[in-house]
Design a protein around this nucleic acid. Structure first.
Lengths: 199, 199
DNA sequence: CGGCCGATTGACTGGTCAATCAACCAGAGG
DNA sequence: CCTCTGGTTGATTGACCAGTCAATCGGCCG
């Protein structure tokens, strides 16, 4: 029968996991919660994934690889560092706008959980820092950016600011309801490139 | 006999907990690990603390209250925002220099664990953000800082950068061995206040 | 001495889950 | 109609660990 994709159960489980992880956090989530949310039997989760960890890993890698590509692409445009950094921040903010639950999970459970999952994915995460550092480094060579700041240092500061803002929205420290993400992106780039003091 | 302080067991347990939490992470730490590290019996931990959580809470509050005081004090000096922000970043970096394990635990297990313990202490954490935001806000009124950046926005960006750098040192993403923390503090303040582009 | 009380001990319990696995079912092909 | 295959089921097992508690210790005071 044209019974096309038979409701891809694997995808179903992944999407359900995002929702449950976002709601309860990874540690507080039982595998049965994921199965229930997906409407499948407990054991099926283990048919598609070899452990609960692997579900989270899969979610992270799926999304993080897109970020790495986005950084790569931003870098390839011949634009100035200001535009490149704007593109990177824009991609991350857009990811949150598009799927807040997924970004919450990735940030809270992986990126900022350097002791547990962050450890596993340190290499991937570092790759993003390095991509940003390269943008800074190129900008310094072209003279568009000051040369007295270590690129990796600037990269960490930039990424840290991005992630902290995201966390603020996620946990309501900063009201996200009225947030215009595009404006936030521009403001952040301005802050980092121009500084807080008047020009 | 002049057997002065009877080896305060409570303190002994707290200090041991810092070491074990830093080494294994809070979740992976069993209460017996803490007791073993402290060289006391399992049950004694429960004599002084009503749960494993309370041990971490105590560690966090002890240190965080000092940070809040430091921010408060930095603000009271009549100096410019640049100096005030430098004092705040300096205090945090010094805390790390003085007791890396404790800072690692606080950041990894509380501050960046907004799902678990961060939730409990959100109010305390927010208080720090607000203290920094006040510094920015005052700076804007005096004309030392640009007025087109929401103070809370700037505060989050600043604190995010600080914490990300710390994380970088903690997890070896950035080599901490050769790091001169005072130079890092100055560089960060310069980056945030002057911006990455040449003046 | 003898009794009191808080500090200290560590075996044990209760509950929680991750992961396994043997059974079941549905469609395809013969 | 039968069989084979692989997706699907969910009860069960086994490990783990936070927190409890009854027993012991040791200093102090009358």
């Amino acid at each position: 029968m044209a019974q096309a994709p038979p409701a891809d159960k694997r995808r179903l489980i992944l999407d359900a996991a995002v929702r449950v992880f976002a709601r309860q956090g990874f540690h507080a989530t039982r595998v049965s919660d994921i199965a229930d949310e997906a409407g499948v039997a407990y054991g099926l989760v283990y048919h598609y994934f070899k452990s609960k960890d692997e579900v989270l890993n899969e979610l992270f890698l799926e999304r993080w690889s897109l970020l790495l590509v986005a950084i790569e692409e931003a870098d390839r445009t011949g634009a100035g560092p200001r535009e490149k950094l704007g593109a990177v921040a824009g991609f991350i903010f857009d990811s949150y706008r598009h799927d807040p639950d997924l970004m919450k999970v990735i940030i809270v459970e992986v990126t900022r959980a350097a002791n547990s999952f962050g450890q596993t994915h340190l290499e991937q995460i570092r790759r993003a820092y390095e991509g940003i550092a390269k943008i800074v480094s190129d900008g310094q060579e072209s003279g568009a950016l000051r040369g007295d700041v270590e690129p990796m240092f600037a990269s960490m500061a930039f990424y840290g600011a991005v992630e902290q803002l995201l966390s603020g929205w996620i946990f309501g420290t900063i009201p996200a309801s009225e947030t215009d993400f595009d404006a936030a992106r521009d403001l952040l780039v301005t802050t980092i490139c121009d500084g807080l003091e008047p020009r």
